[in-house]
């Protein structure tokens, strides 16, 4: 049983790349350390999960959610590969 592919990575079965997941919210968090993911889509899944987690806390504590706040995924060189706006990860229906 492997935790988030960790054992496979250590075993050299999955090539991992370093991605930085930055948060631009009422507080900005620059991810200087970065984390390893198998590929960009895997980093995107985590970025979406992170955005939803932050949004959920805003909602639970009654703070406003700004739909233009965002997560950015950058590679090891600092190039932004993907921007995920809060409005892309939540849906409200009348």
């Amino acid at each position: 049983m492997c935790g988030r592919g960790t054992d496979l990575r250590v075993a050299g079965l999955i090539a991992m790349a370093r991605y930085h997941l930055h948060l631009f919210n009422d507080i900005d968090i620059i991810d200087e350390e970065g984390r390893d993911f198998p590929d960009l889509p895997a980093a995107e899944v985590e970025a979406v999960r992170s955005a939803r987690d932050v949004i959920a806390d805003h909602i639970l504590s009654g703070r406003p959610v700004c739909l233009h706040h965002r997560m950015e995924i950058a590679d090891a060189g600092g190039t932004v590969l993907k921007v995920i706006a809060f409005q892309d990860v939540v849906r409200f229906e009348p």
Partner: peptide
């Protein structure tokens, strides 16, 4: 929590 959310906290 997600690490991003934890870092924000």
């Amino acid at each position: 929590m997600t690490p991003v959310h934890m870092n924000r906290v």
